[in-house]
Structure formats: structure tokens, C-alpha cells
Amino acid sequence: MRVRTIIDKEWEEILKNKGVFWSLVLLPLLLTVAFLAVFYFMHLEAQRTGTLDVNAQIPAYLAMYEPADAAMIMMVNQFMIYFLIAPVALPIYIAAYSVIGEKQARSLEPLLATPVRTWELLLGKAVAAVVPPVVAGWVSYVLFVIGARFLVSDVVMRAILSPMWVLSIAFLGPLFGVLSVLVGIIASSRMNDPRAAQQWSALFLVPLVGAGMALMFGVIAASVWTFVVGALLVAAADAVVLHIAVRLFDRETILTRWK
């Protein structure tokens, strides 16, 4: 009940904060439009010349495809990484707004004076921060699939709808999102300067981007099961980090030292 109250409050504030709301909606939508535009121009070029002059080095694992399809699949992999990163990157800023904004408005003290438990507060804030970017990411992905259907071949479409990417976008991204928010909250509760905490939590994106690049260039091979196991591991990590965050979330530090 109290978790739900926190979530409702956070979402109402997000909806009424035009800056946060539009950044949440526009970024994934603009990326989707940009990706479809790339496909559109590649499609036009292929139609005009009968083939696609690909300057980029095609990785060996794509050598079996036509050059145009191989280039598009390479692009698909790159786009999918963005869809995967969006629900991890955006919640960090929403969480920062929800915790730091609360402190700046001095509304945290009355909130902490209620019987709300630490885990309820943290879970509410984490879910409230993660769900909107995840939903925005899912909607963008669906729009991307619909748009791509008219612009790419069946081979490329199969790459877009590969179980590996669908599972990643459906589960892995959101689970990483929860993890990044919780890490951000831990950083916030252990540091005097909230902005520094925000920067530290943004560093969390680096390994994720690295893993995505490695997949894209075929440096590491991954199957559907790799992603299923990965999602389960990240879910377990979420539970452990929530537990740690509850232990470390120091009401006193936040009330008495945050400036």
C-alpha cells in the first residue's frame, strides 16, 4: 500500500514536470524516428543502385548475408543497444530528481517522519523511476518494428525480432534499470554531494555499453540462453542490491548533511 502511494506520488510529479516528462517521451521516440530514417535512406540507396555500397567492415559472423542485409543487421544490433540502454540511463536521472528534488524541496523530512519503511520508500522510488522509461522503450521498440517492416528485408526483420533482443528489451533492460537506480540511491545515501552521486551512478552504463559493443562486433557470442541466464542473474543482483540499499540508506545522513 505504501509502496503504491510512493509510486503514485512520483508519477504524478513526473507527469506535472513538463521537462522530465518530455525528456522521457521524446528521447526514445526521436531515436526510433532516427533509426527508421537510417533504414529509409539505406532502403532508398539499395533501390537506386540495386545494392548497398558498404564501407564498414562486415564482421565474420555476418558474412553469410547479402552485403546490404549484413550492413542493416549490423545497424540493427547497434539500435538494439540503444533500446537496451534507454531504460538504464533515463531512470538514473528520474531517480536523482525524485530523491534530490525531494531533499531540495525539503519534503524528505516530513516523508521520513511517517511510518513508511526504508524498503518501501526505496522500492517505490526505484519502480517509479524505472517503469516510465521501460514503457517508453517498449513502445518505441514496437513502433520501430512496425516501421522497419516496410523498410527492411525478412532477413533483417528476423534480426530485429530475434528472441535474444526481444528478451533483452523485455526483461534485461528493465532489470538493469532497477539495478542502476538502486546503485544511484546507494551512492546518494553515502555521499554528501547528490550531483557526485548522480555522476557515479551514470558510470554504471559503461560496462553495459561495452557488453553491447562486444556483442555487436561478434567479440562475444551469445545465445538466447545467455540472455535468460543473464536476466536471472541481474534479477538476483536487484534483490541483493535492494537489501544492501535498505541497509545503507542512512536517513540521518540525508537529513543532516545533504546540502
Binding site: 506520488k9 504524478e12 510529479e13 524541496a105 525539503r106 524528505l108 523530512e109 516523508l111 517522519a113
Partner: peptide, 13 residues
């Protein structure tokens, strides 16, 4: 019940 030094309200709500 506690009335803190600053009202600490949610201004947009």
C-alpha cells in the same frame, strides 16, 4: 505528527 521547520510540500500537486 511533526511540523518541520520548512513546510516541505509537493509544489506541483
Amino acid at each position: 505528527g511533526i511540523l518541520t521547520e520548512s513546510p516541505g510540500l509537493y509544489d506541483r500537486l
